[in-house]
Amino acid sequence: MTDAAMSRQASAKSGGRMKTHGKLIDLCIDVFLFGFSLLMILPLVFLVSNAFKTPQEMLSWPPRIIPSDPTLENFRSVLADTPLPRWIFNSIAFASLSMVAIVATSAIAGYVLAKFRFRSLNIIFILILATAIVPFEVYMIPLYFQAQMLGILNSIWGLLLGYLVMSFGIFLIRQNVMHSIPDELLEAARIDGAGELWIFWRIVLPLLRGALGALAVLAFFQAWTSFAWPMIVTTTRESYTIEVGLALFQTGFTVDLGRLSAASAAVLVPSITLFVILRRNFVQGVASTGLKE
């Protein structure tokens, strides 16, 4: 065998070893991630499982994933005793309207702040950023009094009052416009005869589709999972959102686990459906923002 052939064989062997080594590492990572995702999903699995258990089985040890005596009693009781569909509707309406409002305000403000050069705009942008560092709890009470004065307590509009604008959304869109829409594109449109509204509607918005989709998902889930504001602005059972409604199952001394699980499992349906539809935007949103509330 020639030297060259031997060296080829040796390098093929070492290449093969490296390939096996790489595969082993990949397998370890896969096993770890699989175990980790099982751990993450386990509470959800138990939640759904508990919804079908009797009170006795729920307290039995060790807990079982598949109920031995499955029952729909919890669902029947929840639907009969509470206005659960109404709460789900309130939550969907609140989250959807908040999403639309946040996407609209963020798109307009983000575009203007990114592409129009006025000195005052910088000050406005700094003010908007500053609001991001003020915790909601600080202005929650004054906002409540505003809602009261406007006479919109116990309504979707009352819920929306604190969820119309998201300073982070404005920031996100501003950065996106700056990085993904060159000035020349807008200038070309102006020379071609387009007006400012037309440019925004036909050029800027289509190019921001990805970012706006991500923001829409973030905004929807922000409203969907909000608790404190709906808790103080709604006081009648009919006006509750799902988050507030679910808290009713928890009293000072007991937790009605069966019915809570059934209600939660029912609530999961719209959330999971939306997540599946908008999965790509959601991942993009989390990736581009690096955070999720």
């Binding site: 060159p182 289509p206 190019l207």
Partner: peptide, 20 residues
Amino acid sequence: VEPKHRDIAMVFQNYALYPH
């Protein structure tokens, strides 16, 4: 006069084509 009323056309260095 506004750019659109000058009856000119401009070609940019980075083409400025609408990607969508």
